[in-house]
Design a protein around this nucleic acid. Structure first.
Length: 273
DNA sequence: TCCCAGGGTGTGG
DNA sequence: CCACACCATGGG
């Protein structure tokens, strides 16, 4: 069991801020299913508890100093951002499985979070491997082989819609050995981006999400409809393309950009401003 | 019935 | 380079 300060590890915020789709409420907290391992996590009396194997230390990014990150972010002097990173200081950027993150965010395009969760849940129940954790039935994320071998129609039935083709094609590339995500992980942000953008269904926004939530490239800044609103309403940004908005924030926050994005995205969605 | 959701692709200018 | 139609689907 891992015990950690709750100030910089709040499970409710970390799990519901849109970076991960596979978790469910359980007893005092949540069950999380990641990289073929399971954990029971909960906050209590100012602490965060993780009941799972050691892989979750890395998964929750526990070696990173979030106090310093938030301190640095506040120096910029934006009132709403300072409020957001204080209120949601318990958000951490997870280090998720590359393949799962890639497939998940391909599914996320022009979609909403409840539907994304539902589609991925069905995907796991249909193509994943069943196992039991704490007497609860759960499923692993499908392998590239399982997805590559699936008929297209079966993927569409799960609610993926037109994204089914993108998912199958990407799974095919991995299966044929034409896409080695472990190797891509060794690249710097710019080179990684070039490679990911070659995939069908991966554009600027999805690419930034995969780099941030899978590959831990914190100099990423995904811009979706919510963050676009933040830019115009709360940073008084002039009219710009989403790509320009990404550049605006990365120029300003450098390696802290990814954290800034999560604080702003979550606060906006929670209706804080 | 229209609009929106963690957008991207393909086509035409 | 830009604009724009189109892409499934369910909830408000």
């Amino acid at each position: 069991m891992i015990k950690f300060s709750a100030k910089y590890l709040n499970f409710k915020d970390t799990l519901s801020c849109g970076q991960v789709f596979r978790f469910k409420p359980y007893k005092k907290g949540y069950l999380i299913n990641a990289k073929n391992s399971c954990a029971y996590v909960y906050n209590e009396n100012g602490f965060a508890y993780i009941l799972g194997d050691e892989s979750f230390h890395d998964y929750f990014d526990l070696d990173r100093d979030y106090a310093k990150i938030i301190e640095d972010i506040k120096k910029i002097g934006n009132e709403k951002l300072s409020f957001a990173c204080q209120k949601y200081s318990g958000i951490r950027i997870l280090k998720q499985d590359y393949f799962e993150t890639l497939i998940s965010f391909i599914i996320s395009q022009n979609n909403n979070i409840p539907r994304i969760k539902s589609s991925i849940e069905k995907l796991c129940q249909t193509f994943g491997e069943k196992f039991i954790f704490l007497d609860v039935e759960t499923y692993s994320f499908p392998t590239s082989q399982a997805l590559a071998n699936s008929p297209l129609e079966k993927l569409k039935e799960l609610g993926l819609g037109y994204r089914a083709e993108y998912v199958k094609e990407t799974a095919n590339l991995v299966e044929k050995g034409c896409l080695d995500l472990e190797k891509l992980a060794l690249l710097d942000t710019s080179s990684l981006k070039t490679e990911l953008l070659k995939l069908k269904g991966v554009g600027e926004k999805v690419c930034n999400c995969v780099m941030l939530f899978g590959f831990s490239k914190t100099d990423s800044f995904p811009v979706d409809t919510w963050v676009e609103k933040v830019y115009y309403q709360d940073f008084l940004g002039k009219k710009a393309t989403r790509q320009q908005i990404t550049k605006f924030f990365i120029d300003l926050f450098k390696d802290n950009s990814g954290f800034v994005q999560q604080y702003l995205f979550h606060a906006k969605r929670m209706n804080d401003f």
